[in-house]
Write a protein that binds this DNA or RNA. Structure first.
Lengths: 220, 220
DNA sequence: ACCTGAACACCGTTCAAGT
DNA sequence: ACCTGAACACCGTTCAAGT
């Protein structure tokens, strides 16, 4: 039983390595098989076709996400720190995961994981939000809001959505108020580059500001 | 000149139709060519290979996004309504676009558009945020925050990330406090289904609450 | 039980050939 | 100038055959 899992794990290792080194398009049944020293057909009992292989990759990423968070929180000794700190650590771990595996990370949006393990991780997140004082009836929604933003930010970064929007890769007439009035008004701000680490921290601060203050003054 | 664009447009029409009807995997050079009555090779001068075809699809989606917003704001006559209303209309248009083209929509995260037209759309967004009172130095960041969330939410919906997390597609022991303590605490909330329209509206309300109140009490 | 290799039906793209 | 069709180097997967 654990032997089968072991064989599967070795295939997923190989697939993730190829994705990291050569991109997702290079993750071919044949290429993965060659790396583990088998024929392409020998993978089918292990991972169940290409779809199963990619689903397995998402499982691996989720497992690594949790291990990143554990090592991080252990190092700064916030294992049982304030709930918001643990949420922040998780949010930062998402981004680090994306930087470690930029090609494979794009699968996270496309191939939702429904393994018991992923439900356990969701349960941990729900627990943190409850501890942080989010009213129970809002917890699932706030979880989706935060995870959607964190996944989206990391995906935008590694897929180039953010850098592509950088106006310094000049479109003609960018500072012409007649063509791009808002860009012209913001030219000072736009000229300086973006510190993505800082931007992410600011975004998280804003979102947690929301969580902290949304349910204090007014109820619901 | 416009004749070349016209030919290109016809190819992109066909590609989008196939994506809508049969999914993104069915968008094949051969299939698209067949739909416009040409050989596969005749597409190359028009769109420049498969990559160019997919980039063109993203352009189409962005154009449709703006047309959705225009018709919506026109109907509710908020064309020159309050800036926040226009931002809300745009955010809702993103989601409607995803529902119209669920398969092609996933390209939005993967293939950022850098055409002059997309910069014009970004400029419009910047303008709305300035009008809404966001301090200039925060406008690009808030734009990224909002667009990342809106894209991420719509992608999660159409790609099944949200529905896959639905606990009612039962994992064993979901209500066992020993296994999933947070799920057990939230069982009342989780049992009732989610109204996605309502959830999105609440999320937008929260985010605009943030925009409205973040820069009033404390100056950053 | 587990693995292999030939084969099938595809895919994007090159290229020589047609008009 | 614009299009075609054969061909090339792939791809995921089926299946009969080996041990």
């Amino acid at each position: 039983v654990t032997e089968v899992d072991d064989k599967r794990a070795r295939v997923l290792d190989a697939a993730l390595e190829i994705a990291d080194e050569q991109g997702l398009a290079a993750v071919t049944m044949r290429a993965v098989a060659a790396r583990v020293g088998l024929s392409a057909m020998a993978l089918y009992p292990r991972v169940g076709g290409k779809e199963g292989l990619l689903d397995g990759l998402v499982e691996r990423l989720l497992a690594e996400l949790m291990s990143i968070m554990d090592t991080k929180t252990a190092r700064t000794s916030t294992v049982d720190g304030k709930p918001v700190d643990r949420l922040m650590a998780l949010a930062r771990a998402v981004r680090e995961l994306a930087r470690r595996h930029p090609a494979a990370f794009s699968l996270m949006f496309a191939r939702p994981s429904t393994t018991p393990e992923s439900v356990r991780q969701l349960d941990t997140l729900y627990g943190m939000l409850l501890d942080a004082g989010v009213p129970p009836e809002h917890v699932p929604r706030i979880e989706r809001l935060l995870s959607t933003f964190a996944l989206g930010f990391a995906t935008s970064e590694v897929a180039g959505r953010f850098s592509a929007a950088d106006p310094r890769r000049a479109v003609r007439g960018l500072n012409d108020p007649a063509v791009f009035p808002a860009h012209a008004k913001l030219s000072d701000v736009l000229e300086q580059g973006v510190d993505w680490d800082k931007e992410y921290e600011q975004d998280l601060a804003d979102l947690f500001f929301l969580i902290r203050h949304r349910w204090t003054a007014d109820k619901d």
